[in-house]
Nucleic acid binder design. Structure first.
Lengths: 335, 335
DNA sequence: TTCACCCGTCGAAGCGCTTCGACAAGGGTG
DNA sequence: CACCCTTGTCGAAGCGCTTCGACGGGTGAA
């Protein structure tokens, strides 16, 4: 493995010049820079990460904390991860994967040991136990999700509140007068996961504003859970003609359950989902949906974190505006 | 952030003694070790990763290469990732996530730069382009999957060949005389992904051995693909009474497709799957299956890699024996 | 009692890189 | 023409840790 001194010798300059030529932190003449680059290429030189971080520089590693808790939707999380890695690589950083295995303290460890320069935190809860840690150790971080108290933190998320409203607005515009929200598994709400709560708020607010009858029910996954919820819904809200789902794996089972009970989508029931576009598009009936832009959120988070690391100012909270895509699962009431 | 010298001062010993007390690489008296440990605790000391790897020691980081190619099943890959992280943490290592974004050369980069000490490679193909790299740079690695030429490599995998045979044996034992294998999407075979091929081999060999009529069809995902494959299957092999599926997201659609064409599972058709246990158990009809032990494979891979890093000898190829779990999707022929 | 040896500890030398201060050479200004 | 500033490069220090060789004090053998 070639080291910086080898490159320096080959290019006929000093190691420090090589370092500067490569980092651009000091002006280097064009001729020298070219010679250095040539030497780097010929020797296949790569700057040693250990050496770099040893000397107080950044490790160029971002940590990604993904609590693999029950109730989360694996493909969405995976999409975060992939987009974060891709975006990080594009900015010359690598990604260290943290799961919940060792508790929240993984975050502290990784940064204390200098393994990572900053951390991207996912699945943020309203009162997240990791917040004090993030605030205190002044460790650069970006949250995907917005907690209750977001002062001094950098957060990115879809504007779930607006997403909830948008769905209801759409359904109300189609003439529906009774709507229900079928949400995530109960444990998600118990945990007070931020985005789930926000969606409920938006949904409820919009329903009230439009004067609609409404109901909100959490729901686990699987056909049985779907069936149970649908039955309960039809009992509680017999006038129901529209539903918003916020629970990716439940979209199909829900359509089936309604179907079995004699309500066809979209003929008898309009369905709107908040989920990644592919899920909505490939459902049994293509579902009108507000997309959860997992890939974009991941990329943005990286972008913000890297800026933060470079000392640039970053916005506090970035909420991506929801966009509703009409597919074939919604229709005017009484069509 | 406390450094090793602080600990040393506090414990009244030299930094080297602290290092030895912590690593155990030289005998240290009990009294001293205790004092050091106390100092570490009081100061909240954590050994700096940069410093460690700078001095030629290991970074205690494993890279995990997960090519997120089309046709792979995301939850399985995620399970690998989670189990790898968990197992790595249990052995005091962290995990760097590599995706295919930057091509195969990510592996080289990560180890050249000393960021990671070794790499776990997933989704191995029979002729994997990453193999030369792994062989040449003598970089410690473990493959999850077995390529065509496995000499000098450390591999772990489910014994897919035996899994294929096991499924057929089971079906033959139930009296079925015509079996089909519905496999992964075509691109997986084109890519010559190792495990997919091996399963086909085992399936075919066993079918021939039992003198069964057999067919093998790749299949994409989604209800339409399932429907098409089923129709084709019933045309090609009208006597068909048993099917092996090796395509996680297709299990349910396949059952539905057969159902729509008048073949009930297990009354008219016995179905066996090769997939993670949860998928099999929560299908529309609980499916008799050979489990893909993703979590165990991940943990084993870590185990092997860590051993390898410590210089211990490791076996070349570890094939986990398949285990078939009977559920309600298989029945004797003509029940 | 003396010598050899082992155990536990220390000091110092790096690991490969970055970065700070210095310096030589050249160009512009007064 | 003297001087100052800029530009491009170098040398050296140091990051925090590990590790090698050495050393002092004990113990066991002769």
């Amino acid at each position: 493995m070639a080291k910086i001194t080898d490159v320096a010798r080959r290019a006929g300059v000093s190691p420090s010049t090589v370092s500067y030529a490569l980092s651009g932190k000091r002006p280097i003449s064009d001729a020298t820079r070219r010679r250095v680059q040539a030497a780097v290429r010929e020797l296949g030189y790569r700057t040693d990460g250990g050496g770099r971080s040893r000397s107080g520089a950044r490790a160029k590693v971002l940590a990604l904390a993904v609590p693999m808790r029950p109730g989360i939707h694996v493909p969405v999380v995976t999409q975060f991860a992939v987009s974060v890695v891709t975006a990080a690589r594009a900015r010359d950083h690598d990604v260290l994967l943290l799961t919940q295995g060792e508790g929240d303290e993984g975050i502290g460890r990784v940064t204390d040991t200098g393994l990572a320069d900053g951390v991207i935190v996912t699945d943020v809860q309203l009162q997240d136990p990791r917040l004090p840690l993030l605030r205190s150790c002044s460790l650069p971080s970006v949250l995907i999700g917005v907690p209750a108290e977001a002062d001094g933190l950098t957060c990115v998320d879809l504007d779930f509140r607006a997403a909830g409203e948008l769905c209801v607005d759409h359904l109300a515009g189609l003439g529906h007068r009774a709507v229900a929200l079928v949400g995530s598994p109960p444990e998600v709400y118990v945990r007070r996961t931020a985005f789930a709560r926000r969606l409920v708020e938006g949904f409820t607010a919009a329903a009230d504003r439009h004067g609609l009858a409404s109901a909100v029910l959490p729901c686990g996954t699987g056909r049985d859970a779907a069936r149970t919820v649908v039955e309960r819904l039809l009992r509680d809200l017999p006038a129901l003609t529209a539903v918003v789902v916020h629970n990716e794996p439940l979209v199909d089972p829900l359509i089936e359950a309604f179907d079995e009970l004699g309500m066809r989508v979209p003929g008898d029931l309009s369905l709107t989902a908040v989920c990644p576009a592919p899920v909505a598009a490939s459902a049994r009936v293509p579902v009108t949906s507000v997309a959860v832009p997992a890939a974009e959120l991941g990329a943005r988070a990286v972008h913000l974190l890297v800026r933060k690391l470079s000392g640039a100012p970053v916005p506090g909270t970035t909420l991506l505006p929801p966009r509703l895509t009409e597919r074939s699962s919604t229709a005017p009431r009484g069509r």
